[in-house]
Design a protein around this nucleic acid. Structure first.
Lengths: 110, 110
DNA sequence: ATTATTAATCGTAATATTGCAATGTAACAA
DNA sequence: TTGTTACATTGCAATATTACGATTAATAAT
C-alpha cells in the first residue's frame, strides 16, 4: 500500500508526522542547516554544498517550500531561499510539545 | 531509486533524519503518545486504540523498538511496551538542537 | 493433550520516495 | 538575436513503505 490511513488519526498526529516526514531525509536536513548557517539567503550553492544533482535538490526544496518551512525569492536568473521564520517557529512549537512529553515518571515496565 | 545517499551526509544529519523518519507516520506518533499517556506499559490495547490491523501495529512497534525508543517486555501471552526514557531523552536532545537553531536574526531575503 | 489467546513473521499488493537525464523556461549578456 | 546561466519540470527506473491476510510461535487455561 505505502499509503498512510490519515483519516484515522487526529489532526495533531497527522501534522506532526508531516513535519517529521520532511525531516526524514538527510538532504533536507542538510539544506535546512545550511540555510540557517548562511543566515541570509542562499541559492544554487546548495547544489555544490550538498553533493546531489540539481533536479534532486530542486525537488527537496519544493517539498520544504510546500510545507512552508522555506521561502524562495527570484533574483535575476537565480533563486534565493531562506527559512520562513514564522512558520519554522510554529512548527517548532508543535514538534517540541510532542518531543517534550513527560518522561520523569518512574513507572517502567521493562 | 528510493534510496537515500547517506554516505554523503554527516553522522548527525543521518541521525536526525532517522529519528524524524520514524515520526513520519501518524500511527507511530499515536503509539508513542498513547504509551506516554498510559505512563505505565500497554500492550495489544494499541491495536484497539489505533484502528490498524495487528500485524501493522506490530510492524510499527518493531521500527520504534529497533531505534531504541521503546522497550518490550513479555508478560505471559502478551507483550508490554513502554517508552525507553533514557534513549528518548537522548533523541530529544538531538532533535531539539536541530529544531532550535537561531531564528532571531532579522536578515531575510524574501 | 487440546484449545484459546497474543503477538511476531511471512508474503504480497498497492503506493510513495529518491535520484537523475533530458528537457523546458525565464532572465540576463553579448 | 543568440547564447548562457540558473532553476524548474517531466519521465522513468530502482527501491522503500504501508497495510493486511495467512501462518507461526509461545504461553496460558481447561
Amino acid at each position: 500500500m505505502g499509503l498512510a490511513k490519515t483519516e484515522m488519526f487526529t489532526e495533531g498526529q497527522n501534522k506532526i508526522s508531516l513535519f517529521a516526514k520532511v525531516f526524514g531525509h538527510p538532504a533536507r536536513v542538510a539544506i535546512l542547516q545550511h540555510l540557517f548557517k548562511m543566515n541570509a539567503c542562499v541559492c544554487g550553492d546548495l547544489v555544490n554544498e550538498i553533493g546531489l544533482a540539481q533536479p534532486t535538490i530542486s525537488q527537496h526544496l519544493k517539498e520544504l517550500k510546500s510545507l512552508g518551512l522555506i521561502k524562495g525569492n527570484v533574483e535575476g536568473t537565480s533563486v534565493c531561499y531562506c527559512i520562513d521564520k514564522k512558520n519554522w517557529t510554529a512548527m517548532k512549537t508543535i514538534m517540541m510539545e510532542f518531543l517534550d512529553q513527560d518522561v520523569s515518571q518512574d513507572m517502567d515496565c521493562c
